[in-house]
Design a protein around this nucleic acid. Sequence first.
DNA 1: TAAAAATTTATTGTTTTTCAATAAATTTTT
DNA 2: AAAAATTTATTGAAAAACAATAAATTTTTA
Lengths: 70, 70
Amino acid sequence: MIKINLDVMMAKRKISLNTLSDTIGITPANLSILKNEKGKAIRLSTLDALCKALDCQPGDLLEYVEDESI
Amino acid sequence: MIKINLDVMMAKRKISLNTLSDTIGITPANLSILKNEKGKAIRLSTLDALCKALDCQPGDLLEYVEDESI
DNA sequence: TAAAAATTTATTGTTTTTCAATAAATTTTT
DNA sequence: AAAAATTTATTGAAAAACAATAAATTTTTA
C-alpha cells in the first residue's frame, strides 16, 4: 500500500492547502483529494511541483507500507 | 524534474525487466517505457507492486532533481 | 459564540495517460 | 551466429487526473 504523507510535509513547511494548491496550480479541492489517499495515480508533473514547492523528495511524500492482513 | 531510478534498483536486485514485468503484471514493453523516463504519470497500484517486488521505497525509485538552466 | 477561513465532499465533463496487446527492431548475452 | 532481452512503435480501451463549480463541514480567530 502506498501512503501519501503530504499532510506531514505541509505541516513541516507550515503551508496551508490553499496556498500550496495555488503555488502548484491545482485546485484546493483536487489537492485535498490527493492528500487524503483518494488518488489512484499521480502525474509526475504534479509530483514535481509538489517537491519543488515543499522542497522535498518524492520519498517524503510517498511511502510504501506492506499491509499485513491476518 | 522527476527522475526514475528503476534501472538502479533492478540492478541492485539483479532482476531483469522481463522477470519484473512478469512479477508485477505489466507487459515488458510498458515497463520499459516507465523505466526510461517516458512515462508521465504512474498509478499508485503500479508503484506499490514495484516497491513490493523490489523490496524498496518509492524514494528509491523516484527522485526529484531541480533542473538548473542557465 | 459568531463570523471567517480553510478543508472536504460531491458532481460533471474534458483531456490526458496508463496499460493491454501486438509486432518489429534493436541491443545484449551466450 | 543464435538466442534472449530490451526498446520502440502503434492502436485502442479503460481509467484517472484535473478543471470547474458548489455546497457542506471543520477549524480558526476575533
